[in-house]
């Protein structure tokens, strides 16, 4: 995956497909039992592979900030919002106490919190889910990061709050210019919020391209299947059967000897029995499929197999 400065990339896929692990790989925080193997992970040309913990400290929270689905996992219940924001500010910013407090109040205002003084003195459990997520975004913005990774930031929120938080992220991005990786299982969240999409399935990116292209003309049968399974008011006939993808996701420990989607695919051929590479369709759009759909037609491509497993 690549992300341009100031751009939003949505990483979408069903639970367990590897979205969160991808985010962890970028921030060097893979789980203890996991081993990260990568050709290259780089931020503005600087490699993030094999960094020491001390070097990460200048990057995590500072150049790359992460916002999680459940703010309670990253907020400490025993400290006020002010304590937690101040701690992060002290680590990364050279500001005196007064300037730091002004910065905190300003950030809370920027994320749409109307009485920031009150909120600063409160504990996380005293805030609603939506407010906590706004606080997390304020904390993420503290050091003006170049990249924000938001992992299911609105999944736990009510629909009206979800729309407002997504809007907030988009508005803040316009103002601050950070790149945004928006991880979500909800394709609805992607439309309007992301410039480009990477669709993941069973640990791989199976399609990537501009949001509007992928949503209106999905090339990979998995993307197509997902889109057909979601009712859209005004477009899907009410009550008519929805599309679905038969079968289940392969186990993560299944051997990687064929296209990962072969057992659920609507158009498999014998050539799909080898691992398939992510192949470009045009310079901006790629699919891990030898029979992608292009302009409404299934096209046959040479079974270029993966170079590296």
């Amino acid at each position: 995956m690549t992300l341009d400065a100031g751009e939003t990339l949505a990483v979408v896929g069903e639970s367990g497909c590897g979205k969160s692990l991808s985010a962890m790989a970028i921030t060097g925080l893979v789980p203890p039992r996991a081993k990260l193997i990568a050709d290259r992970i780089a931020l503005k040309g600087k490699s993030l592979l094999g960094l020491r913990e001390r070097e990460w400290r200048g990057i995590r929270g500072r150049r790359i900030a992460v916002v999680f689905q459940d703010p309670m996992t990253s907020l400490d219940p025993c400290y006020t919002i002010e304590d937690q924001m101040r701690e992060i500010g002290r680590q990364h910013l050279a500001l005196d106490a007064r300037a730091l407090r002004a910065r905190m109040l300003d950030l809370l205002r920027q994320v749409g919190i109307s009485s920031p003084e009150t909120r600063l003195s409160q504990y996380p459990h005293q805030l609603s889910g939506g407010l906590r997520q706004r606080v997390m975004i304020a904390i993420a913005l503290m050091c003006e990061p170049e990249l924000i990774i938001a992992d299911e930031p609105t999944t736990a929120l009510d629909v009206t709050i979800q729309a407002q938080v997504l809007r907030l992220l988009a508005d803040l991005q316009k103002e601050h210019g950070f790149g945004l990786i928006l991880i979500t299982h909800d394709l609805g969240v992607v439309a309007g919020a992301a410039d480009r999409i990477a669709v993941m399935y069973a640990g791989q990116v199976v399609e990537s391209g501009p949001t509007d292209t992928v949503l209106s003309a999905p090339a990979h049968p998995y993307t197509e299947g997902l889109l057909h399974s979601i009712p859209v008011p005004g477009r899907t006939a009410r009550g008519a059967p929805l599309g679905f993808i038969p079968g289940v996701v392969p186990r993560p420990d299944a051997p990687h000897t064929a296209c990962g989607f072969i057992n659920r695919c609507s158009r498999p051929v014998s050539a799909c029995a080898t691992p398939i590479a992510l192949m470009p369709i045009d310079p901006a759009h790629a699919a891990r499929c030898i029979r992608p759909c292009l302009g409404g037609q299934i096209v046959e491509r040479h079974p270029a197999t993966e170079t590296a497993a």
Partner: peptide, 21 residues
């Protein structure tokens, strides 16, 4: 207004309601 659907050329809604539940 808050319904988000996976269709091309959508814009994020700007809701007319404030504050929280």
């Amino acid at each position: 207004d808050a319904i988000l659907v996976p269709e091309a050329h959508r814009r994020l809604p700007r809701l007319t309601i404030d504050a929280e539940f």
